[in-house]
Structure formats: structure tokens, C-alpha cells
Computed example of a mutant assay.
Amino acid sequence: MNWDDVRIFLAVARAGQILGAARRLGLNHATVSRRISALEQALGVKLVDRQTTGTELTPEGERFLRTADEMEAGMIAARADLAPDAEGVSGTVRIGAPDGFGVAWLAPRLGRLARDHPGLTIQLVPVPRSFSLSRREADIAITMERPAEGRLVAGKLVDYTLSLYASRDYATQSGLPFGPGDIAGHRLVGYVPDLVISPALDYAGEMAPDWRSSFEISSALGQMEAVRAGAGLGILHSYIARHHDDLVAVEGFPQIRRAYWIVYHETLKPLRRIQAVVKFIQEQVEGDRSSFL
């Protein structure tokens, strides 16, 4: 059995399609398909069902995926142990993060990390979605909850707060409510409930039991821009909103408290580039901890 064939199988299993795996590996579609067939022939079983919409692992493929994951972890650990300085802080690290934290807070800071490590390529994917670390959709993920399952390494980054905000123009034209019971009649900007990626982000009822959004946006930054434009009241990340002079916090409402976690797959723990990025993010958060509350 050829390790390169196993590596290609892992890419196909994680991408869910041969074309996506080929792009990620820098190979052509035919080569990937041929190497999967060679692995199946070597093992004497069918691992992948090829479909018009992508690929699906057979039951044998699912079982072999666990073995392939362990093989990959062993290879990574062996390289780190036998040649600890050979890799250096180089290669590509993809970070998945919520758009608020990723765009407004993390993106302005990652340039320093790139300057410190010229051989490192950082990919920041700041979108309001969850990332599968087992499928390598990201190497590192910033999440709102500690993962309950999977072979993952997780550490709490920081607590943060959300508060009710309005634009100064809205406050002048429409006035502000005095508390949760006074919110009726005000235009409310919120999230799209069925697109919430985590139960921790379904928090409108904590701000006001009768919250009913008239304008729903799936992006936290989109909600903030709508509130700034006077579309209505909105529940915004305090560490972002307080930097905008055209926004005012609405008094008489509770602060909502949540947390960010930094998570990566345990097989990546020996990689210096992963540890360098994780350490950088942790240090940056620690230095700015007070701004999140």
C-alpha cells in the first residue's frame, strides 16, 4: 500500500469529491481517480462510490478512513520527532472564524504574523458558518462553544459581550426604549434564525422575550452596518460596536455574555506552523482581553 495513495484518499474523503480533492492537492482529476483505484485494488475493497454530485465513502471506506487518519497522525508526529527543525514555521494554515471576530478583530492583526514568518501562508475564512476540522475545511477554527466530540484540541480564548445598540440618527428620530417591555413599536435588526450555526448564537430572547426582527441578516457585520444606517435596534458585539461613534448603547437592557474557543484537530498538534498560529492568536487576545467585555 502506497502512502501517497492513502494521502489522496484522505483528501477525497474530506472534500467529498474528486475534483475538489484534486484542486487541493494540485493534481489533475484523472490522476486522483487513478490513485484511488490503485488503493482499492491494493486493499481488495471498494472505498469510494463515485456519483454525479461527488463521492461517498462505502462502509469499508468509512472504516479505512479511521486507519488512514491514524496513519497521517503517525506520519506528522514522526516528521516532527525526527526532524523538528526541518519544517520550520512554513506552509499554509487556514483559519475559520465568525465574520465579526474574523474581519473586525483578527484580520487587522494577522499581517504581523505573516511578516514574522515569511514562509507561512495564512488563509482567513471569516464567514458565519461552522467548519469541519475532521474534513480539513479549516486547520484552526474559532467557535462559540467547546466541541463536545471528535479528536479535537480546544482552549477557551475569551468571554465577550453583546449589547443593544441604535444609531444616533435612529435615537433622535424614533427615541429609545426604556427596557425589554418597551420594545414594541421599534424596528429590530436581527439574525436569520434557521441559519444560526450554533445554539449559542440564538440569543435574541435573552435581550427581550418578545423580540421580533423586521430585518434579518445572517452576518454579524451586516447587522451592525444596518443598525448604523438607521434600520433599527440591533444586538451587536460590544467590542466592535463601541469603536463606532455613530452608535449608542441602549440602557436598561441586559448584556449577553458568550465565549470564543480556539480549536484544531489533534493530529495537527505536532506541526510548528499550527502551534505558531495558535500561540499568536492566544497572545493577541490576552493583550486585548479587556476590550471584549
Rank of each mutant, 00 (worst) to 15 (best):
L39D: 08
I36V: 03
P270F: 00
R109E: 12
R146Y: 00
V263Q: 00
A141R: 01
A15N: 11
L233K: 11
T52N: 13
V250F: 09
S198N: 12
S167W: 12
L164D: 10
A259K: 09
I281H: 13
T92Y: 06
G222F: 08
G230Q: 01
R168D: 12
L133F: 13
I281W: 10
G181A: 07
D194F: 10
G190M: 08
I36L: 15
F64V: 02
R146F: 00
E225D: 01
A154L: 02
L152T: 07
G287W: 06
G190F: 12
A86C: 07
A114H: 13
P84D: 06
L271Y: 01
L176E: 12
G16L: 13
T267P: 04
D81Q: 08
H186M: 10
H29Q: 04
F64N: 01
G222A: 13
I140N: 05
S290M: 06
T172Y: 08
E40T: 11
Q223F: 12
K46C: 11
L110S: 00
T172K: 14
E56A: 13
A30E: 04
R7T: 06
T172Q: 15
G74N: 03
G175P: 09
L268C: 01
G252R: 07
I217C: 08
S37D: 15
Q223V: 13
I256E: 10
G54W: 03
D246Y: 10
P177S: 04
G205K: 14
I8D: 01
Q284M: 10
D139L: 12
L113D: 05
L162W: 04
L293C: 05
D139E: 15
A30S: 07
G222V: 13
V48L: 05
L27G: 00
G54Q: 06
A259G: 11
A78F: 03
G150Q: 06
S167P: 08
P84K: 09
E60W: 13
T121I: 10
G20K: 11
G102A: 04
D288W: 09
A77Q: 14
E286P: 02
V196A: 15
H117I: 03
P118L: 05
L236P: 02
L157G: 09
